[in-house]
Each structure stands twice: as C-alpha cells, then as structure tokens.
C-alpha cells in the first residue's frame, strides 16, 4: 500500500463522510479531505490539489458529470483522477465513464476499510483486474 496520498471526498452525506474518513485513515494512513457540495469540492480541489477525488454522482447542487467537466476545464485540477461513488450502476455504463475521463467507479454499498485497496487497483497504484 502506498503512503502519503491525499484523498478528496465530495459527498453531502455526513455519515458517508465520516466512515470514509475513518476507514481510509485506519487502513492506509492517507489524508482525507472533505467537501459537502460540488462547488466546495471544485474549490478544495483547486486549492489542495489532492491525489485522487472520490465524487458522489448525485449532489444537491451539481451533477457529477458537470463537476468532472469543471475540474477538467481548470489547469490545476484537470489531471487529478476522479472516481465516482454511486448507488446507480446502471445509469452509467463503463464505456461512458472513460468518455468522461473518469477513471473508475465504486459502488455503494462499500466497506470503507477496503477503499484504499479499491482506489489503488483502479489507479493501478498496485496491480488488479483480470487481464
């Protein structure tokens, strides 16, 4: 497991924020940054430049794809990998994700203790997949 990563979590649910924070910290020691809305998330991403962004697809203020577009439009954030957190697998098919420039998808419900491992696999920080 790689150390010293900084993860930005954009999710409006306080409970999810908390379990992600605890889960990631306990298993990896990575730093977790929290944003409760799309606007706040974009702002934090620009100022903090995290290594990865976990983005809830459904936020009250903005749609997930709009946030991704906003991030890609800004030089400071355009290269930060984004992983979707969603409960609606069927609304976004895998080919659509890569079109958007989103690196992967983590389905709710997840076990937050496994998040560092899942993130690493998606971003090829360690080997995963079946190829």
């Amino acid at each position: 497991m790689m150390s010293g990563k900084r993860v930005l979590v954009i999710d409006d649910e306080k409970a999810i924020q908390t379990v992600i924070q605890f889960g990631i910290k306990l298993t990896s020691g990575w730093q977790v940054l929290i944003a409760s809305s799309g606007a706040e998330g974009i702002q934090t991403a620009q100022t903090e430049k995290p290594d990865v962004i976990l983005l809830d697809v459904r936020l009250p203020d903005m749609d997930g794809t709009d946030i991704v577009k906003a991030l890609q439009a800004h030089a400071a954030t355009k290269d930060i990998p984004v992983i979707f957190l969603t409960a609606q697998a069927q609304t976004i098919e895998k080919p659509q994700l890569s079109d958007l420039g989103v690196r992967g998808m983590i389905l709710k419900p997840f076990n937050s203790l496994h998040l560092p491992e899942q993130i690493s696999r998606i971003l090829h920080w360690s080997m995963g997949g079946c190829k």
Partner: peptide, 21 residues
Amino acid sequence: ISHELRTPLTALHSALKILAT
C-alpha cells in the same frame, strides 16, 4: 427503494466493520 437503502447501508456497514477492528 434499493438505491435509497444503499447510502445508509454503506454508512452502517462501514461503521460496523470499523468498530469490529
């Protein structure tokens, strides 16, 4: 219903797993 269940379940599931450690 299933989708609305998923978010609280994620929190519950993760919280219990963390407690169990």
